[in-house]
Write a protein that binds this DNA or RNA. Structure first.
Lengths: 150, 150
DNA sequence: TATTGTTATACTCTATAACTATA
DNA sequence: TATAGTTATAGAGTATAACAATA
């Protein structure tokens, strides 16, 4: 009789590691993101890019990548996709002919707003185990870890 | 003059979403995992599998996958890799000839213990922004989210 | 020389469908 | 019929190196 005959096997040393729990909780939220935006073609990365562009109109793609931890090379296809879908506009930057100046199109603003509404509702649901204070604490603690990205 | 001329562009709506911060903090920790285990061939998934097997000797790979949220199909190459590297042993389960009974080899126990030591040290470092209580709170809150994986 | 965007490439992770052998 | 393991495959995400145009 194997030791996993109960419903849930033991986690072992995994259970003490913040990294493990981060990974699993992050996966739960990513799955929920997919559910929330199903059928819209939205993805976590794309939402991030759109949000940065909305908050910083005229930003170039290198800066977007740096803000989100995405490599220059990988930004190319993302920006292409958003452009082809008519969600962003790119114009050669007036002050630097190497760079593109990115802005949201009306369609881009709409899909960002729509996704945000869906995500807020879904996060309220997935995080219903947490009080408002706990949720704020969670964001605070995660931000402190993010600050360690050197 | 674009609005991103300052050092850090604004995050926009992203900043309110738990999902975003989870993603970024998770990435910081994953990068740190790689640093901690550099040169050992250890990866987050493999560490997870080894930990589950250690805590549940004789478990089969389907149950390992269920515990970690890994699909059956994707368990195959992971288990193959661990077997080929001599870190686990698989024997046909005595009570079910379809299944493999998995256990750690001495080498598997060693690499798990070694990785754990490295990871503890690294987590202490990446999480040095957090007090012991805060760290415990973080794990608690993450666990509550994990529980929502339905 | 350094930086912006680009191409090419490769590896990991993840997801699905279909198969086999056992139960 | 259902389950354990397997194969094949495809799509994301991520990482590196090298190039052209511009600064």
């Amino acid at each position: 009789m194997a030791s996993d005959d109960g419903a849930t096997p033991r986690l072992g040393v995994l259970d003490e590691l913040v990294g493990y729990h981060m990974r699993r909780a992050s996966a739960v939220i990513a799955t929920d993101f997919s559910r929330a935006t199903a059928g819209t073609g939205m993805r976590q990365v794309l939402f991030g890019v759109l949000s940065i562009i909305e908050a910083n109109p005229g930003i170039n793609q290198g800066a977007v990548g740096r803000a989100l931890g995405i490599q220059r090379a990988n930004m190319v296809s993302l920006v292409n996709e958003l452009d082809e879908r008519g969600l962003i506009a790119r114009r050669t930057a007036s002050d630097d002919r190497r760079a593109f100046s990115l802005t949201l199109t009306p369609a881009g603003q709409r899909i960002l707003a729509d996704s945000l509404a869906r995500l807020r509702q879904h996060e309220d649901d997935v995080l219903s185990n947490l009080s408002g204070t706990e949720r704020a604490t969670l964001i605070l603690l995660l931000s402190r870890i993010e600050a360690r990205s050197n």
